[in-house]
């Protein structure tokens, strides 16, 4: 049993690199291995979702001339890049990864980002929000709760224009947020990069309409129909490596608005906020300024899968950027956000 599991993993992993060792290699539990094999058989929904995503990626690569994959180092963009590589296999993935770096990322994320791009052997393009600010195209928010989340939009749109991209593939999922639940898989952006929710094109069967005028572009979301649990089950099935932030580790955190934020150079503690050391992991890995950690002992992919299957709080419940108002995501998306 365990022998089969090991050879199965080897087969999958040869495509990437031996340096990227699956999280399961550390897990001593044999039951975890068996769990994978049983899950592979039962989870036909993962196969359906995988095939659908690959179909969408191929459709995007066929319809657009200058596409890029929006890559943050987070699990969704990692899975997206993984699927994109499969979509063109055995050819090499030549579509670049584009990271909009707020300058507020966790160092672990950036290290992972660079290693992942190197091992996938795909070009990595990084555009800095700081450059946007330095050029006077945007200004930092002020105050204790300042984040650069909204500023990313300006940098992203500038990058799309600079690189003359006609399509940006993103790992956004409809289950993340209620405005995203209404967005098309091929989502049109006007010449100002804006999403127009009332002008969305009907999207039927597997037919995706990527026609546009010069200066406009599309966002393409191959993982639209995936849930957080699907992503994790897929990560487990494929033995995909993720940043260590996703797994339980000890870290200095402090509590703010019911969330645990990491102590870092990018956040200023209020006078009443006290750092404490906790065993935590992150469900999403956005900016250190607005991404909440949760107390967790889930140290392997399978433990995370189990934890998420039982979770009663949404993934973005730990995101301060979504908490600002009822429609904050819709408002940001209209302006061209991810």
């Amino acid at each position: 049993m365990s022998k089969n599991g090991a050879s199965g993993r080897e087969r999958v992993n040869t495509v990437t690199d031996v340096h990227i060792v699956s999280r399961e290699a550390d897990a001593s539990s044999v039951s975890g291995e068996e769990c994978v094999n049983v899950a592979d058989v039962l989870h036909t929904h993962l196969r359906v979702l995988e095939d659908e995503a690959i179909h969408i990626i191929r459709e995007a690569l066929a319809q657009f001339e200058r596409a890029a994959i929006l890559f943050s180092g987070g699990k969704d963009s990692v899975v997206l890049a993984w699927l994109a590589r499969k979509a063109v296999s055995p050819a090499k993935l030549t579509v670049p990864l584009l990271h909009i770096d707020t300058g507020h990322n966790f160092p672990e994320t950036l290290r992972f980002r660079d290693a992942f791009a190197r091992e996938l052997n795909v070009p990595l393009l990084v555009r800095l929000v700081q450059d946007t600010i330095d050029r006077g195209r945007a200004a930092d928010e002020t105050g204790v709760r300042a984040t650069r989340n909204a500023l990313q939009t300006v940098t992203l749109l500038d990058a799309i224009q600079e690189l003359r991209l006609d399509a940006a593939l993103g790992g956004a999922r409809r289950d993340e947020e209620k405005a995203r639940a209404k967005e098309r898989i091929f989502s049109h952006r006007n010449a100002f990069g804006e999403w127009e929710p009332k002008q969305q094109r009907p999207e039927l069967w597997g037919l995706y309409n990527g026609r546009k005028n010069a200066g406009e572009h599309f966002r393409v979301f191959p993982l639209s129909n995936w849930t957080e649990l699907d992503v994790w089950q897929y990560v487990a099935r494929e033995h995909i490596q993720l940043p260590e932030l996703y797994f339980a580790h000890d870290r200095e955190v402090f509590e703010r608005d019911g969330m645990l934020l990491a102590v870092s150079d990018h956040v200023r503690l209020d006078t009443d906020e006290r750092p404490v050391r906790r065993r935590v992991r992150f469900r999403t890995i956005g900016d250190a300024t607005c991404t909440g950690a949760l107390c967790s002992d889930a140290a392997t992919t399978h433990q995370v899968v189990a934890e998420i299957a039982a979770a009663r709080v949404t993934e973005r419940g730990g995101r301060a950027d979504d908490r600002r108002s009822e429609t904050s995501m819709e408002d940001r998306k209209r302006q061209g956000y991810f």
């Binding site: 409809r174 209404k182 849930t227 699907d230």
Partner: peptide, 14 residues
Amino acid sequence: IDVAHRYFRTARRR
């Protein structure tokens, strides 16, 4: 106004 996609699962099905 628009089509919204929702996802849920039970022990039997996604």
